[in-house]
Design a protein around this nucleic acid. Structure first.
Length: 222
DNA sequence: GCGACAG
DNA sequence: ATCTTGTCGC
């Protein structure tokens, strides 16, 4: 797919904050996606050479049967350090390289990390969604910001994630008796639709099949 | 000023 | 994210 950059990549945190604050108002947290969904994708990152090289992987699956449709991998030098709140500046450049090689344009992308459940409401899922103008959802394995009540052990149960008085996402149990995941709107997807999509992409494991496939590609040294 | 802190 | 074996529990 063809990608149009929205900005150049910053070197400093101050610059990065300006970009986040400038683009945040463009994030859409209401549904604006093709339905029924036909293709869902997952993206994930891996690192080589002690972190000097970033490796991005994309896996496109058919929906709702979740069969692998297409994959791509891209490598490039790592240019931004990992700083909580600025993950997108470290990972997105390589992700865009991998997405450019994809022939099957996904109807939605599940990202590894937060959407609007972020200090400035601009996590990696929002940033990626805005740049490529494709619906995105943030699915994180751990909490960045916000608080929530305890939730039942049953798969499918969830609780709102609250930050400074706003509902910024949800803590979702994707598997009975297993630690929950943190779901939030990325771009062009509402929270309820995001929760439904994550559940439908999750079968026998805690994480969505999309990110599991992307994870295998990003980790296997080949 | 003191912690917390996606991957 | 990454370094790494066995091990506890359903």
């Amino acid at each position: 797919m063809k990608i149009y950059q929205r900005h150049t990549w910053p070197t400093t945190v101050d610059e990065a904050i300006k970009i986040q604050e400038q683009l945040q108002p463009e994030v859409i947290t209401e549904d604006n996606l093709k339905q029924p969904l036909q293709y869902v994708a997952g993206v994930d990152m891996g690192f080589e050479e002690d972190g000097a090289i970033s490796r991005a992987a994309v896996a496109v699956l058919s929906f709702p049967d979740l069969q692998l449709q297409e994959t791509s991998i891209a490598r490039r030098p790592t240019t931004f350090p990992y700083i909580p709140g600025f993950l997108s500046f470290r990972e997105i450049p390589a992700v865009l390289d991998a997405l450019e090689k994809i022939q099957t344009t996904p109807d939605i992308i599940l990202c590894d990390g937060q959407g609007i459940a972020h200090p400035r409401r601009f996590g990696i899922a929002c940033h990626l969604g805005l740049i490529i103008d494709i619906p995105t959802i943030g699915v994180a394995k751990s909490l960045l910001i916000g608080k929530h009540d305890d939730l039942p052990e049953t798969r499918g149960s969830w609780q709102p994630l609250i930050h400074k008085g706003d509902t910024v996402g949800a803590v979702l149990r994707t598997r009975t008796g297993v630690k929950p995941v943190y779901v939030s709107s990325g771009h062009r997807v509402s929270l309820l639709t995001a929760i439904d999509c994550v559940l439908r992409c999750t079968t026998k494991y805690r994480l969505p099949e999309t990110t599991r496939f992307a994870d295998k590609l990003a980790s296997s040294k080949d």
